[in-house]
């Protein structure tokens, strides 16, 4: 095998390996469309937060009666960290990180739901009102 053919094989190998890397990177980008944590208060959207690894914050969902749920977002996960409800079921739900998971606080009428790309795609194309 002469040098030119070696070169061609080398280019071939680079192209093939490169394309696999390209596909992997592309797939990673798709996954990078992070899920969204939607916090509802009284059945209405209180706040939407993207669950990317870089976002760390705490959101206090407080109502006029002084009742509260402290929602924590960290490392692409979300949980109810503290609440003044009697049974603390929302806290017991623990960390959420997959679309569809939710933590609900019935006494304070607060819920945290994770929506993923699938839910986004379910949005209608137009809205008639």
């Amino acid at each position: 095998m002469n040098r030119v053919n070696k070169l061609i094989y080398a280019i071939l190998a680079i192209l093939i390996i490169g394309s696999f890397i390209g596909v992997a990177v592309y797939e990673q980008m798709l996954k990078g469309q992070a899920p969204v944590a939607v916090i509802y208060k009284d059945k209405q959207i209180f706040q939407r937060v993207y669950l990317t690894k870089s976002i760390n914050k705490q959101i206090n969902v407080r109502d006029s009666d002084g009742h509260y749920n402290l929602v924590e977002i960290k490392d692409g996960q979300v949980r109810v960290k503290e609440a003044d409800c009697p049974n603390k079921l929302c806290i017991k739900a623990g960390w959420l990180n997959k679309p569809g998971q939710m933590a609900v606080c019935i006494p304070n009428r607060v819920s945290v739901v994770i929506e993923g790309a699938a839910e986004e795609a379910q949005q209608p194309d137009a809205h008639s009102f």
Partner: peptide, 20 residues
């Protein structure tokens, strides 16, 4: 809110119009 959905979606499916 007065929607004119003409033709169909590019993938051939009908449009999805949400009703308030």
């Amino acid at each position: 809110g007065n929607v004119m959905a003409f033709g169909h979606k590019k993938d051939g499916n009908p449009w999805r119009v949400g009703i308030q």
